[in-house]
Design a protein around this nucleic acid. Structure first.
Ligand code: SF4
Ligand code: SF4
Lengths: 153, 153
DNA sequence: CAATATCGGACTATTTTAGTCCAATATGTT
DNA sequence: AACATATTGGACTAAAATAGTCCGATATTG
């Protein structure tokens, strides 16, 4: 149903938390406790994020993680890229397409346009903009004017 | 990696083929042969599309499928909705969110904005615009200026 | 040296997706 | 009326992606 993986979702939650903490180091267990992400999951995510260069790690006692760059320079597109690979809405959106229908397919071009549109939408949101409070807690219209998500068919 | 399912992909290929055939009926085996989608897969897809009201079926000998509406009135968003359910980039994008982090999550609102942007991008492409081959065979002067994703703000 | 916390990888379980099959039903033709 | 063709609906199996867990190695602090 066209969704990001739960890992990616939780990854952004963790990154937002790190952004709030500024330059202070946070251990994996610290992050897990504060975000309520399961500890092993948080560990795994932080490892991946460190490898991707989005967070920096410090080993040893009193070690931990912190953001590698200012939150305003990290986009949702980068986060998705890091955690689940580049956006590729169809098989033929990747470099090494293995779609057997490609030779006679009539829709690939349009999908690639859509792919780019999604990519632009993701690249347009930075980590500090991601810190956008409540999805639930259906409190009356706050400053978040246009955030309605009508999903029913 | 944020992609539509292969079924959805093949579903659009089939719909584009039906669009090309106009009002003429096509049997499932006809569709399979022309699009090179495996026959059982094509059958399954046509059934789902018929149930969603995107194609109409005629039973019996010489029966088959055809589009229920003109191609220009069918959008990619509808196709995705029909084949894999409404776009819901995160768990909390759905009506019945079951995310256990929701109460303390700081990112849900932003994801819903992104969700809407993706939805808009999909709703902006109609079935006849979808008929666009991937690599070569570029028709002159396309009207394709309309796939912009900047819907937010 | 001892305590703490990351690092790297491998492993299992779960869920989702893909693909297949069969019996029932409807329609046109012989 | 009987037959051949083609959709319909559901259930079923197989395959793949995802989620989550675990453990030994390594680096840093004190
Ligand atoms: S759009 Fe066409 S070429 Fe691209 S993956 Fe789908 S079927 Fe294959
Ligand atoms: S964005 Fe937050 S509330 Fe929404 S699904 Fe992800 S963790 Fe849950």
């Amino acid at each position: 149903m066209l969704r990001i993986s739960r890992l990616t979702d939780y990854g952004t939650v963790i990154l937002v938390y790190l952004a709030q903490r500024g330059d202070r180091l946070c251990s994996a267990s610290d992050v897990a406790a504060e975000t309520h992400v399961a500890l092993p999951t948080a560990q795994k995510l932080l490892k991946v994020l460190a490898k991707a260069g989005l967070v920096e790690s410090t080993r040893g006692s009193e070690g931990g993680y912190c953001l590698a760059r200012p939150p305003s320079s990290i986009t949702a597109a980068e986060i998705v890229d890091a955690l689940e690979g580049p956006v590729a809405i169809t098989e033929c959106s990747t470099e090494a397409s293995q779609c057997e229908l490609e030779s006679m397919c009539h829709t690939g071009g349009a999908w690639q346009r859509i792919n780019q549109a999604i990519r632009d939408a993701l690249a347009d949101v930075t980590l500090d903009e991601l810190d956008c409070p409540p999805p639930a807690a259906r409190t009356p219209a706050h400053k978040t004017a246009g955030v309605t998500a009508r999903q029913q068919r």
